[in-house]
């Protein structure tokens, strides 16, 4: 694909990825966030962080399966959008939900497994966001690839966070878990195949 069309696709996806945030502001200003607006914001930002994360992890499998090498140029943006929505998610939790009640928040994170795994996922994604620049890629060389393997535990913890939050009907988080599983399986398949060759 030509560089100019890739640039246009990137711009398009950038605007698309801002959509969920714009929607939240729209719903907020028009009083359409429902009976429990804080919960709505937490769920929405969390969902979109997870979607962006799975999309960024889908880049390599899709590239391998369909020979779409140009997809790689979208991966960083998708990864950063995951981090962006995860930060908004955490901010909504700290501010709107708990009003920076640090003692309560600390206890909540330590005592409750679903909060803890979500928190860990966010912490582990910080080094990924920090080292996402071209300069850092050049600087870290081979170590950059090793470091960015962290995307896998981040994804697994993120899905667990959703799964353990849900009270009984786990069909939604299972969809995310299934997609993650398939994406990991495709990678594993290609890794084993390459090793044999």
């Amino acid at each position: 694909m030509a560089p100019t069309s890739i640039a246009w696709i990137k711009r398009g996806i950038f605007l698309l990825a801002l959509g969920p945030l714009i929607r939240l502001f729209w719903l907020g200003f028009t009083d359409q966030l429902g009976a429990n607006p804080v919960e709505f914001i937490e769920h929405s930002t969390g969902t979109w962080a997870l979607v962006a994360l799975l999309l960024s992890l889908a880049v390599t499998p899709l590239r391998l399966l369909f020979n779409m090498g140009w997809l790689v140029s979208l991966r960083r943006m998708l990864g950063l959008f995951m981090f962006f929505y995860a930060c908004l998610h955490f901010l909504a939790y700290l501010w709107l939900d708990h009003w920076f009640d640090w003692a309560g928040i600390g206890a909540d994170i330590i005592k409750h497994p679903y909060v803890l795994v979500g928190f860990l996922a966010l912490i582990l994604s910080i080094p990924l966001a920090v080292t996402s620049t071209d300069a850092m890629i050049r600087k870290l060389k081979r170590r950059w690839k090793t470091l960015h393997l962290l995307a896998y535990p981040v994804a697994i913890l993120g899905v667990l966070h959703y799964l353990w939050l849900v009270k009984k009907d786990i069909s939604q988080p299972l969809i995310y878990a299934l997609i993650l599983f398939i994406l990991l399986l495709i990678r594993l398949y290609y890794r084993l195949k390459l090793r044999r060759v």
């Binding site: 607006p37 919960e39 708990h98 206890a107 005592k111």
Partner: peptide, 22 residues
């Protein structure tokens, strides 16, 4: 007594806005 997965110390009253506290 907390629920194993979340705290029961506070609650959110339905009908508040985005900036309503627990």
């Amino acid at each position: 007594v907390d629920h194993p997965r979340w705290s029961q110390a506070s609650e959110r009253r339905i009908g508040g806005n985005v900036f309503s506290r627990r």
